[in-house]
Design a protein around this nucleic acid. Structure first.
Lengths: 151, 151
DNA sequence: GAAACACGGACCGGAACGGTCCTATACTGA
DNA sequence: TCAGTATAGGACCGTTCCGGTCCGTGTTTC
């Protein structure tokens, strides 16, 4: 259903990694790439765009690299995906100029748009911190609910 | 976020149309295509696959066409999308043979898989009938909630 | 038997995606 | 100061997928 691009995937992985290593003042793209066997050049670009979008801070030069621009709790998965893949709507006719030629045609879109909003809401409620935490504890009791949504 | 292919879009539109015309014993692909300015040949194929998946009944020959195989209430948007686009997971590494080489890498995937399940749940709870109903009433009071999900 | 329909394979152009290469710039440490 | 390591970013490229078309076959009705 929801398809994440590999880039968005890589981005989330990298941010999670950064969240897990707060002690390091900066982590290079190469380090992350090697840790997860991700193409280094590609990851570098992804991190660059995340930096441009204000999610990361970067430092050039030796011992340079990237660090979270904000607290891991204040960065949502939604932001990351949005920054990397850009806005993706369900509707193929993305409410651009001419909505759908035939206004009657798009009666389906309205309910689906609400589905889209739900998904966005779910993604917004999941922080990088959540990703990092869920990763470690290894089944300590059952997982607590991440979100609860109504649309 | 969630991206529907145009094919799935067309499929939903067509099913909604069929749900709105229960009096007709069969509606031809051409008719639906013309009503919504959808490429006829393309729509034909979509309806064919939906027929193969058991969502539609087809009848060849003159005055033939398609009709819902079940009650519009018993067909979910999820089924339609699944039938047309096939299973789409969030994870790029679609839990195939080798999950991700590095098992440690995929710690992100588990929370996202749950997001995916939520989306699926939302889509499953929306029937073709819902789409057809939401289309008509034209703001009779506020829209009632479609779903409520917890993950 | 001809028209209208469903079926289904082959094909194709374009866009997007994943990925690489190459160059420029910035910072650090010896 | 110079070499090495890092970010920054443009150009490019192969593959895949998606939307769409074309063609031929089978089936039913008039």
């Amino acid at each position: 259903m929801l398809r994440l691009t590999k880039k968005a995937d890589y981005g989330l992985i990298a941010l999670k990694f950064l969240a897990e290593h707060p002690e390091a003042s900066a982590v290079s793209a190469k380090d992350v790439a090697e840790a997860y066997k991700i193409p280094a050049q590609l990851l570098a670009k992804i991190l660059q765009t995340l930096t441009k979008k204000g999610l990361l801070r970067s430092q050039a030069g030796m011992n340079g690299g990237y660090a979270l621009a904000r607290d891991a709790r204040a960065i949502s998965a939604f932001e990351v995906i949005l920054a990397i893949d850009g806005p993706l709507f369900i509707t193929s006719c993305t409410k651009g100029e001419k909505s759908c030629e035939l206004k009657t045609s798009c009666t389906i879109k309205e309910p689906l748009a609400r589905v889209n909003e739900t998904i966005a809401g779910v993604l917004q409620s999941i922080s990088i911190q959540d990703l990092a935490e869920q990763a470690r504890p290894a089944a300590k009791g059952q997982l607590e609910p991440l979100v609860s949504v109504t649309l």
